[in-house]
Nucleic acid binder design. Sequence first.
DNA 1: CTTTTTCCCTGGACGC
DNA 2: TGCGTCCAGGGAAAAA
Length: 273
Amino acid sequence: MPELPEVETVRASLEPKLVGRRFEEVEIHDSRLTRPVDPAEVAAELEGERVSAVDRRGKYLIVRFESGLVLLIHLRMTGNLVHSRNGAQAQAHLRAVVKLDDGSDVIYRDVRRFGTWLVLAADEVDTYLAARLGLEPLERTFSARNLGERLVGRRVSIKAALLDQRILAGVGNIYADEALWRARIDPRRPAGELDRGELGKLHRGIRRALEAGIARQGATLRDYRTPEGAAGTMQNEFKVYGRGSEPCLRCGTPIAKTRIAGRGTWFCPGCQR
DNA sequence: CTTTTTCCCTGGACGC
DNA sequence: TGCGTCCAGGGAAAAA
C-alpha cells in the first residue's frame, strides 16, 4: 500500500528518467483510471508533452510538463509504476503504458484498479491539492506546534486523525501505527487531548517512521515495487504493524490488534499510553 | 461543521 | 478440489 515513503521512492527513481523526456505515445487500457474522463481523451492530451519535473505532495505523484500541463497520479492500494528499457511485455493487470522519446517505457499496473490519473492545468493543481491535503510531514514547516493546531478540538482517535489527509498528508495505515509506537502514544487516544510533550514525540515519531521507510525504499507487503522492479525492505523493520501477539521490541508486552476507523491497528498496550 | 459508514476492486487466506 | 466468506485499505461520497 503505497504511502508517502513508497511514493517518494517512486518519485526519486522516476525523476531522472522522465525529466526532459517526451511522452511519445500513451495507451490507457482501463477507463476507471481516468474516470470520469474518457481515457482516450487523457492519452491524447499527454501525447507530445515534455516532462519538466516530477514532484510529490502527500501520496500524489505530480508529473509537470513544459507546457504547464500536469498529470496527477495516485497509486491508491495496488498501483505500480515500472520503468522498462526493453518494452512492455504482456503483463497481468496492465492499465497504461507511456512510451518515452528515448525508447524506454513507463508501465502502470494496478491489480485492484483504485489508482487514478488526472490531468490538470498548471493553475488548477494547487487548488486541487490544497482542498485535499494538510501538512507535509517532511517539510521544514511541519512542527509539533502546527500539528497540535490541526488537532485542537478533535474528538476522533489520534490514529484516525493521522489517516486524515486533510490534517497530515502522506501517512497511511502502516506508518500511522509505526509513528504512534515510536511516540509511545495509544492510537485510541482522542486527538485533541494530546499534551505538548506528546505532540513533540508524535512529530518526531512521524518523521522518524517516514524517513526509515524512505531509507529502505518503502515496504513491500505484496504489490509495491520500485520503478526498477525491486522490493522495498521496510517490511522487515516494522515495530508493530502486522506483529499481533509478538513481543513489543521495547517492553516485551504482546502487541495487540484492534480496529480503528475501519483499519487494522497494531499497538503495544504496555508502553503506548 | 465533524464524524461515521458505505462503496469501489481483486486476490489471497481460511473454513468446511 | 471447490466454493463461500472475510480481509486488505485510500479516498470519494453519502449518511448521520
